[in-house]
Design a protein around this nucleic acid. Structure first.
Lengths: 158, 158
DNA sequence: CTCCTTGCAAAGGATTTGCACTAAC
DNA sequence: GTTAGTGCAAATCCTTTGCAAGGAG
């Protein structure tokens, strides 16, 4: 796939250096739909025996967000990161904190809503809240920041 | 107004005690559209010479959210609180972090979107992002957590 | 070679918690 | 009187930052 090339190109243009850590972190995110936290990425890399520091994971993730290669999601627990940057929506489980993609078509017209005089809209987000399949199945409490893989419960990206 | 009575009723039902601090905090929020943070509430009360601790402000706000008397908003900086609990949407300024109400009608049909098998939707939120009037006017950087009153820039609740 | 990145540890902001005391009910 | 709420300080969680050493271009 030439996605790596495209990414590298973007990094060059943005004068971010293509370091081993950045490669690792971006690879760890690539193609995932479970919106991991910085900690999750960090632990997964460490478990694979890679050497990265949590600080670097944070710095890299934020940098990639600034470059437009990732999207940052705010919610109840720690921030989560989404490698799929095309406009789309999310579902957040109020029980476990997991975030899922929602396949519903993007409503471009919402970017042209009248907020009020002097307001400039750059984007909009829709977030559904409720209980995810994992949690309704188990019916028991969990920690706020996801544990392990979240699967996608049947949603996903078109 | 009999809203106080209603609230008191809810507090009784929920066996929350109607203490001086809770009254103060709820009063400080009531009718506001600027979605203050816990710190803001705390400082405003202290400036008025009231005695409250920041811990109590946090505890109270979270409790009132649990009771459904407030809504909690997650964003870039610290959490913000909204006394207007009827379904409505928000605009968040990516420069200063201020949050405004958006008058656009609530889209109930979005609560019936197909997320996927096993997903139960309890609510949805739409958040617009962009630059608020205050910031486009000033054109300069600011701290993430709002400073002082944010006005409402022409939006507001119907 | 130069400047960006990293790792580590320390600092920082936001929020919660333990505990003895106080105040609602 | 009971039991829940409060203030204070300490603790915790999440994230950023300073600095010296390392690595990419």
């Amino acid at each position: 796939m030439e996605r790596a090339r495209v990414i590298m190109q973007m990094l060059i243009m943005s004068r971010l250096r293509w370091t081993r850590q950045r490669k690792l972190i971006l690879d760890a995110l690539k193609g995932r739909t479970d919106h991991p936290t910085a900690e999750q990425i960090y632990h997964e890399l460490r478990e694979r025996g890679e050497t990265v520091s949590l600080a670097t994971v944070y710095r890299t993730l934020r940098a990639l967000v600034r470059e437009g290669l990732l999207r940052e999601l705010h919610g109840d627990g720690p921030d989560r990161f989404d490698p799929f940057v095309e406009p789309h929506y999310h579902f957040r489980c109020i029980r476990c904190g997991r975030v899922y993609d929602v396949a519903t078509p993007y409503r471009g017209e919402l970017d042209r809503v009248e907020v009020g005089p002097g307001f400039v809209i750059t984007s909009h987000q829709i977030t559904w809240e409720g209980i995810c399949p994992e949690c309704s199945r188990e019916g028991k409490e969990r920690r706020k920041h996801g544990e392990g893989s979240a699967g996608d419960g049947g949603t996903g990206r078109g």
